[in-house]
Amino acid sequence: MPSTVTHLVFDGVADGPVGVALDIVGAAARVVRAGLVALPRGRMAPLQRIVSMDGKPVRTAARRTLAVDSALSLRGLGAGDVLVLPGLGMTTAPAIAAGLDRPDIASGVELIARAAAKGVLVAASCSATFVLGASRVLDGRQATTTWWLGPTFAQRFPRVGLRTDRMVVESGGVFTAGSAFAHADLMLAILASTLSPSLAHTVARYLVLDERASQSRYMVMEHLGSSDPVIRKIEDFVTSHIERQLTLHEMARATATSPRTLARKVEKALGTTPRHFAQRLRVAQAVHLLETTQHSVEDVAARVGYADPAAFRRIFRRETGETPLARRMRRG
């Protein structure tokens, strides 16, 4: 069975994130069905639906009527499925408090907690992260929210490790994102985690999401976090030794696994090889250096482990679709 992405909307839902999410998941399904990206064995193109608590249309933040497919039901939802909440039109602390007291949102909070207990991946962006917080699924985990509501979030949910410096945070299988249009980054991160990083990159390229100031293509790389501690260890090891190339045996020793076991775990979690994962991390760091420093392309190449600048340029273009110099010039 393909995984199902269920978009749960309430009255006051932000219009833009709903459309962006539908476009991203729809594009992912078309890319897979066209054979442009091969998914790992056993995974299929995603399905999606929009639901409300009672199955009735909702009024968006722009006061438009948004039709839905059905009422939210946990029947048929399980591990591998996604329940995602687009941001709501709650921009102040009093609006947050009033929103969480609404009967429809209170009922949603209860069902979200039950969905997470069933193994459903739950996610939210912007002020909808408060709904996840109220469900307690974020307790003991890290999360982000829209930056100006950070103090309100921290006060209301002291058991959550708040990271307002991050665009998207994955922690223990729960995804959160910052302001409303970070919902695009959130959906790409979910695609990368549940289906394939290559699929997320391809969708970002087709929808030109790499043009956005949030650097969605590279936010995907930052937030491919897996619940498997081996994946976290290899990411930490690679980023700690970003200035040099690492062998498979070195990465295996750092994660206390054999090369074969490491390869199997990375393939299962990320749909790629340990060497390619390390390469993507180095390219992501190169993007950061190109956009935030005046180091030459040759110096950036050396700082991320490429002694041969020509090889670095080839790999950078293959991974990002543009040259290092073009990336720097486009970001000004």
Rank of each mutant, 00 (worst) to 15 (best):
L248S: 12
V287Y: 00
S52T: 13
L325P: 05
R159A: 13
R328T: 13
V168I: 05
R141M: 06
A14R: 00
Q215K: 08
E222L: 11
T152H: 14
G140H: 12
A307G: 15
V208D: 08
M187C: 04
E319G: 03
T91K: 12
Y206D: 08
S52W: 10
S107K: 14
H288S: 14
L248Y: 09
V13L: 07
L262E: 09
V5D: 03
L83E: 12
H295A: 11
R327E: 06
G178D: 09
M329K: 11
G305D: 03
V68P: 12
V20G: 01
D139F: 07
D104W: 02
F277I: 00
Q142D: 11
D15T: 08
T202V: 09
S135H: 02
T257L: 08
T292P: 02
T91A: 14
A124K: 01
A106F: 11
A134W: 05
A117F: 08
A200D: 00
S196Q: 12
L47K: 00
G173W: 05
V37D: 00
R327H: 10
R59E: 15
V137G: 02
V31S: 02
V120K: 09
T292W: 03
A128H: 01
Q142N: 10
A45L: 09
L85E: 04
A200F: 00
A204G: 05
L74D: 00
R217D: 04
A307H: 12
V131P: 03
G89R: 06
L72F: 12
G161I: 05
F277P: 00
G225E: 02
V82Y: 04
A113Y: 08
S193W: 02
A302E: 07
T92L: 12
R264M: 12
